[in-house]
Design a protein around this nucleic acid. Sequence first.
RNA 1: GCUGGAGUGGUGGAAUGGCAUACACGCCAGUCUCAAAAACUGGUGAGGGCAACCUCGUGAGGGUUCAACUCCCUCCUCCAGCACCA
Length: 833
Amino acid sequence: MKYSPQKIEKKWQAYWQKNRINQAVLSKDKPKYYLLEMFPYPSGKLHMGHVRNYTIGDVLARFKKMQGYNVLHPMGYDAFGQPAENAAIKNKADPAKWTKQCIDWMREEMQEMGFSYDWDREVATYLPEYYRWNQWIFLKMFERGLAYKKESLVNWCPSCQTTLANEEVIDGGCWRCHSKVEQKDLEQWYLKITDYSERLLEDLKLLKYWPSRVVTMQENWIGKSFGVEIYFRLCDKGGRPTDRIIPVFTTRQDTIFGATYIVLAPEHPLIKEIISGSPQENKVLEFIEKVSKETKTIRTSADVKKEGVFSGAYAINPVNNEKIPIWVADYVLMEYGTGAIMAVPTHDQRDFLFSKEHNLPMRIVIKDPRSSIIDAREMNEAYEGDGIQVNSAQFDGVHTSQSKEKIANWMEKEKIGKKTVNWRLRDWLISRQRYWGTPIPIIYCDQCGIVGVPEEDLPVILPQKVAITGKGGSPLSKVDKFINCKCPKCKGKARRETDTMATFFDSSWYFLRFCSPKYAKGVFDKEEVDYWMPVDQYIGGIEHAILHLLYSRFFTKFFNDLGLLDFSKKESNTGKDEPFIRLLTQGMVLKEGEVMSKSKGNVVDPDTIIDKYGTDTMRLYIIFAAPPEDQMDWNERAIEGSWRFLNRVWNLVDNYEFKGNVPSAQEDKELKELRQKTHSTIKNVTDDLAKDFHLNTAISSIMELVNAIYAVLSKNQSNNQIVKEAVETVVLLLAPFVPHLSEEMWQKIGRKESIFKASWPKFDANAIKQDAITFIIQVNGKVRATMELPVDIDEEKLKASALADSNVAKWVQDKMIKKIIIVPKKLVNIVVG
RNA sequence: GCUGGAGUGGUGGAAUGGCAUACACGCCAGUCUCAAAAACUGGUGAGGGCAACCUCGUGAGGGUUCAACUCCCUCCUCCAGCACCA
């Protein structure tokens, strides 16, 4: 009978559905395993990236299930967001209907691929039963001051007509539509993720099973730096010192004696005061006006010339009482540190360029050990390395390695500075002027101010049939019925917040909701979360290395603070509130070295592959073609190899009968080797799946075993226990990869139950043991012979055998044997001189 | 610039101190066929040799070692993330 995947696959998909084979139920007598793939945005069609992500996950989920774990493997949809809204603008469609339709299509596709999801646990973030808990979480944060409103300059995407988080600005463009991002002054909702900076950084140490690059990326993003806040005194209009302080942050307090001017960010609040009435006033105002019009892209691109103006005011360098000018320049950022810096042109390249441009004074205070330059005028660039302090009063002669600490301590003692820690991480901007998102549950009352919606009034339902034009701010701001409401406190007339939440909010806790997706009494059922969490294995794209994973960690820590979860008693050893034990970031799927995209017209549609080869072949190929973490190139021809292999396996089961009641002659060398191969394959495949995600080499090993079975069969030894064991092993080992075909073959060889009720094979250590080993014989490190010898041969005999080989003898000849190195069970190296 | 990762046959890739190129794609030859496809069998890093074998070979150069794709140093190239963070 021919292998016809389409028939087989439909049949088993129906069987799994009917027998609820993938249902996960809390059960304390089995070890749990929570395997999660990042849930998709419901665009309506799966692309190869999804297929790869979910296939990798499915292989591991099915493997763990066969190993006897109670596996939770859920799927859902990150269903709010702009594509639905854009579709609504374009086609005048209803985003809810559009989204539901897309979800239905995607669910069907995923079922066609045979993924082992527990469909009873499906969640979709656009449903009120999900987003009410977004609102609940927001209110908990609001109560604790972690959600707050603030007017500030925000990133504004003119095309999407909405604000963007810093994290959503990529190379100065909108992360979604790539339009140039502008700056706009708006009142916005923020989450105070910065309160968690220290914990988010510290707990990265617990994530031993995360790829190091993801940990590093998060470390850099959080960006902790140690330094000193130094207090410069402001001078009055006549140039005399006052008691007003300008604090500046530096990590290079060792260069303070070389600070020859101060630079303020153009947005610095002090500027207006110090320039008023001075001759420079207009020039400075003009400059600030000019900078404010510039987008962040222009302002922060490294190759642009640094621009600035003198403010007319002066300050006092507290270490030497020098009067130094105060400048305003675009290269200083208001968001970082204090928005003011001390400029040390000799030891900071940016300051160096700026001072050359504007002819500002400079002085060397750190001596470059490899250079003889002592005059700053001779420098071609700033020296940013370590060295000996010069021109630094009592610190002259001290090396940077000690002076940093000494100067910091001295400043604290003199009360002219304070050791400070600075973070790069900013608070998270979450409000969006969009329709298709969770309404922020806030009410504005003229009497009571900003009031949270009471818990019992949740959810605040997103109104339907709203005109979505894509222009002029939030669509909700035009829905009077939605806006007008009563103040929960004073019952007077009030207005609702019309902004919605960024969708990253929705995805920051969905993994917790999966534990009890239908729970109505709270955000999640504590008992279920206590059992299933943390996620044992999380799989998704590297593009989420920072945002999604950082936000999820933040939310989990917040839930811990609320007393809703605590993982510290778990064996996972990832602390009390880290959500993901292991992380696998799968690589992208490319076509001829390029990203698949509609615009390039090189998209491979999974459906056409299924039509041609069936889903098992597609799954096998996508796993076999490259290691999961690497990018893989989709090769239309190479998939034939996977198809051919599955046919070979199918024919094996189809053409031969493996009754297994014919005992084998143990002394038969071929059969003995086959048994050895069978068991070493079990070991290899199990290790590859359990330890390092070497899924591609797991397949290679199984292919080798199949080749070995064919080799034995070609010698006409079809019907005996050893061959039967080998074939059964192949079927079992293939089950996680090609579940449909494996089920079919499992029945074919006489089994009645689902193969996923069978247990994963265990290898017999005795069977792997070899009597004889092929020893490598080297002379001076070069292979000159190989010889089959008993494993337990003693060293003298081994040496003698090696030297007896004619080719070895030729190379040793009459030369002096210096020594003979023996690596047990592997090789002999004869060193001659 | 900083941080992280990678560089191996014609191609995807394997080997983490011990036979470099497992497994697969492609290609070549053969079997079957009127023919083709499919399937099956064999071959396939480069160079030399009738052969046994020999030399070279994992981005470049150096080093450690009996032995290096693997460890160390210098450099080159590519990819990714961050980037005026004081």
